[in-house]
């Protein structure tokens, strides 16, 4: 929890983990939420690093996206990540395009 803002870090967005337990303040399970949040950020980076962006946790409540020039934008929820990523990278996010979920080694093989 952020001791300054008393934010608990479970989130209220439909995709957040508090929604998985139907509770706003999941005190008992906070370590599980943290672990799941960390996994989600690893997944986001698998998609964002190829676009030249890095996603980091912002106080357990929001997500911070930074590009190679050091510009940082905050995405308050998972849904906000995509327009922010498009704005910073200039690339289009399209999960229906095969390349979007291609592992980087697979992309290299295709390219090479």
């Amino acid at each position: 929890m952020c001791e300054v803002c008393a934010i608990f870090g479970a989130g209220e967005h439909w995709s957040d983990f508090a929604r998985q337990r139907d509770t706003r303040f999941p005190f008992a399970d906070i370590l599980h939420y943290r672990a799941e949040r960390k996994r989600r950020i690893a997944m986001l980076n698998a998609l964002l690093v190829p676009l030249g962006l890095l996603c980091e946790d912002w106080d357990g409540e929001a997500l911070a996206l930074t590009d190679a020039r050091g510009r940082t934008r905050i995405a308050p929820t998972l849904a906000d990540v995509w327009p922010v990523a498009e704005g910073l990278s200039g690339a289009r996010v399209d999960p229906l395009a095969d390349a979007f979920f291609a592992p980087s080694c697979e992309m290299e093989r295709t390219d090479g």
């Binding site: 997944m43 998972l78 289009r92 996010v93 229906l96 979007f100």
Partner: peptide
């Protein structure tokens, strides 16, 4: 996998 599913669905709804 809930984190993977939400990453996918949020991106899909953003784009389409």
């Amino acid at each position: 996998d809930w984190p993977a599913f939400t990453v996918w669905l949020s991106a899909l709804l953003h784009a389409h």
